[in-house]
Design a protein around this nucleic acid. Sequence first.
DNA 1: AGGCAATGTAAAGCAGGCTTGACTAACGGG
DNA 2: CCCGTTAGTCAAGCCTGCTTTACATTGCCT
Lengths: 71, 71
Amino acid sequence: MNNRLKILRAERSWSQGDLADRLGVSRQSVNAIETGKYDPSLPLAFRIAELFGLAIEQVFSSPTQHQSKAI
Amino acid sequence: MNNRLKILRAERSWSQGDLADRLGVSRQSVNAIETGKYDPSLPLAFRIAELFGLAIEQVFSSPTQHQSKAI
DNA sequence: AGGCAATGTAAAGCAGGCTTGACTAACGGG
DNA sequence: CCCGTTAGTCAAGCCTGCTTTACATTGCCT
C-alpha cells in the first residue's frame, strides 16, 4: 500500500508533528505510515483524505491496482 | 463508519459466504463488517471497493462526513 | 561549539481487525 | 418432517494499528 502522504505534507510545508496534530494521532504513526511500516485504519484514511481534500484513492494506492506511470 | 455492503451484496444475490470467498476473508468478517461490529482494514476496504467497481467513498461513509438524505 | 527543530527508529503495551469453530434461528424444498 | 442454506452471534487466539517514552541523526541558527 503506497501513499503520497509525504508529498502532500511537503506541499503544505507541514512537519510530521503538524500533520499528526491535525489528524489526532501521534507523530510516530504519521512517520510509520509515510515510511510504509503499516497501513492506517479506514477511519484514519478517511480523515487523511478529508484533510487534503482528496479521495482516498488519490492518497493511497492498493498494490493490486496498476499505477499510472506518469502524471 | 456506515457501509453499503449488504445492499451491494444483495444486488448481486451473493451470500455472505460468497462475498467472503471473493474477498479472501472469513464469512464472520463479512458479517461483522455488514453489521457494524468493526471497520475493515484499509487493504480490505480497497479490495471491497474494487470488487464492486466503486470508490471507497461510495461504499463506506465516514461518520464525520454528512450524508445525503436521498438518492 | 551548543541548541533546537525535524526525522527515523525501537520497545512495550493496549485496542481493534480477523480467524477458526461452534451454536442458534429462520426459511424453502424434497 | 427432515435437510440444506443463509444469517447472526459468541469465544479464544493471533496479528496489526496506534500509543507513549526514549534515543540517535541531521541540519540550521547563533
